[in-house]
Structures are given as C-alpha cells and as structure tokens.
Computed example of a mutant assay.
Amino acid sequence: MTTTTTAAAPIGAGTRAGLTARTALAPMVWGTTYIVTTELLPAGHPLFAALLRALPAGILALLISRRLPHGDWWWKIAVLGTLNFGIFLPLLFITAERLPGGVAATLGASQPIIVALLVVVILHERFSRWRVGWGVVGVAGVGMVVLGPGAGIDVIGVLAGVGGALSMGLGVVLIKRWGRPVGVGAITLAGWQLTAGGLVLLLPTLLFEGIPEHVDGPAVAGYLWLGLIGGLVTYSLWFAGIRRLPVTATALLGLLSPLVAAVLGVLLLGELLTPVQICGFALALAAMVAGQLTPRRKKDLLTS
C-alpha cells in the first residue's frame, strides 16, 4: 500500500526569508549540545544521552498528535528515525566525548557538502558548484574558529563524526524526497522519527551501557533541554524548513551550530576569540548566507 504526500508550494522571497530564519533556530539550539554534554551530563553514556534525547520527546509528540504512520510510511519512518536519531545521536555524543569541541564541530560542518553530493544521486538535482564551494568555505571558516594547536585526533571520535554527518545528511535528503503524508504536521513527523530512533536505541542502551549510577539535578536539566527544546521543538522547525526550502541551502544553516558553540565558550567558559577566529567566524557566516542564494545561470543572464 502506498500513501500520498504533500507537495511543497512555491514561496516568495519574503516568506522564504522568514522560513529560513525560523529554520536557522534549530542549528543554533543544537550549538548548545557540546557544552551541555561536557558540562552537565554524566560522562561515558552516549547511548543513554541519545535515548533520552529521542524517545521521551517522541512519545510526547505522539500523545499530542494522537496519530500514527500508515501504509508505506511505517518503513519510511523506521529508516528516517534510524538515520536521523538512532545512528546520528549516539555518534554525535561519542564525538563530543572523544574529541575536542573544535574537531567535532569541524567534522559536523562537512554535512552541507555531503548533502550537496547526495541530492545529485537521490534527488537527481543539478550539481551545485556554488553551494559545494560555499560549503568548503564554511568548513574552512569553522575550522579557523574552533581548531586550535592543541586539538587532538582520536580515530574512533573522527569516524563517529564522519559517520554522524553521513547519517544525518542522508536522512535530510530522504525527507526532502519523501515529503510527508497529507495532513501531517511537522511536530507529528518529528515525533514519529524521534520515537522510531528512540526504540532503535533502547535495547543497545540497556545491553551495553545501562543507566548512569548518578544523575544529578544539572544532568536532569540537561536531558530535558536536549530532549524537549533540542529535540522535539528544533526538529519540528528543521523538518518544516526542509520541506519548503532548497535542501542544500538548508543544510548550510548547520554552520550555525559550531559558531553558537564557540560563542557559548566565550560567554560561559571565559574563552577568548583570536583575530584568526573572528575572521573564521565572519567567513563561516558569509558562506551560510551566500549558500541561501541561487545564482542566475549564464543562459538566463543572456536572455534577460
């Protein structure tokens, strides 16, 4: 049995700007993940952290929407939930625990490049040298901001970072390809995926990690922030944006995450930005903004 999906209607420049701004809130909030993980959560429990970020928020969304997938959306949600949460989240927390924040952020910033390549294969879109180029510039800018001379390299951490970028990138492109069922809102779609991803994580978490022996008040606050705000709210915004915005341009908004993490380091941990880091900050922001634009082709310019 197949099900129909909603098609995204064309949007004007003003509407697109507002939608882009709302979608950008998601990676900005995700920029808090590193500092919350390292400062508030019990160390050595990436699977448990991923489970609590996904499953409770997903169940809450199901209770709110009171709607379940139907038809072929059962297997599609299983795939999307596994890619976007069941695989991505534990790899994210492994990366945050095993690598300095700068290295982890730079690996995560490679996702727009991965998405730009995947849309050619999966969505059969034209290869965008413009957005791939700005994606490379964005990675370079992020590297200037967050990489320092003392940045260490852990092989498992690097593999986790690359694997997480690949998993989330593929999930983003598949969401763009499949859309969502008619009448299903972004919160419901996010809830389905969070629940599916949480269920994928449940058994491995219980078998290999279990529950941390000591979960204090700050840790509870951290889990609530990552699950409710960093999970359900932000992914609802993110999926709504992906549906209507160009997927590669949307992926470039992810550059905001490491930049927000760097700002939090200055504000909360007393870190200082060097002139090179400030230049990298400006470069990454320029790449993000430029990636939202669609350059006119030479043929169009000649006929206009």
Rank of each mutant, 00 (worst) to 15 (best):
V103E: 01
W134D: 11
V120C: 13
A140Y: 07
I87G: 06
I59F: 09
A151E: 12
L147M: 14
E125R: 15
G150P: 12
W75C: 11
L99E: 01
T23I: 07
V137I: 14
L117Y: 03
A17N: 12
G81Y: 04
R126M: 12
A24D: 08
I35Y: 04
V132S: 14
V121L: 15
L68A: 10
L80G: 04
F93H: 13
I59P: 08
G108D: 03
V36C: 02
G44L: 09
G133D: 05
W74Y: 09
T106F: 07
Q111A: 12
Y34H: 14
L123F: 04
V136Y: 09
L83D: 02
I77P: 01
G58Q: 03
G164W: 10
A21K: 05
G135A: 10
R66H: 11
A21T: 07
V162I: 15
R129Q: 15
R53S: 00
E97C: 03
G148A: 12
F88Y: 12
A21I: 02
L147I: 13
S110W: 00
E125K: 14
W73A: 00
T23P: 05
R129T: 14
P100S: 05
A160Q: 03
L55V: 05
V115A: 02
I59D: 04
M28T: 11
T82F: 11
I122Y: 08
P149A: 15
L52V: 10
A43Y: 06
L83R: 01
L47I: 08
H70R: 13
V155C: 12
V137Y: 08
W30K: 01
I87M: 06
R66N: 08
R66D: 06
A26R: 03
R126H: 14
L19I: 12
V146N: 13
G141A: 01
P90F: 06
R16Q: 11
V158W: 07
L99P: 02
P100W: 10
A105N: 00
G108I: 03
V79C: 03
F88P: 02
L89K: 08
G101Q: 00
T33R: 02
H70Q: 15
L147D: 07
A96K: 02
G102H: 00
F85A: 10
G164N: 13
G138Q: 01
P46S: 02
P56E: 03
Q111S: 12
R22F: 15
G141Q: 06
V121M: 13
T33D: 00
A78Q: 00
G150D: 15
L83H: 05
T38D: 07
I114F: 05
R22Q: 15
A160T: 01
L55C: 08
G135K: 01
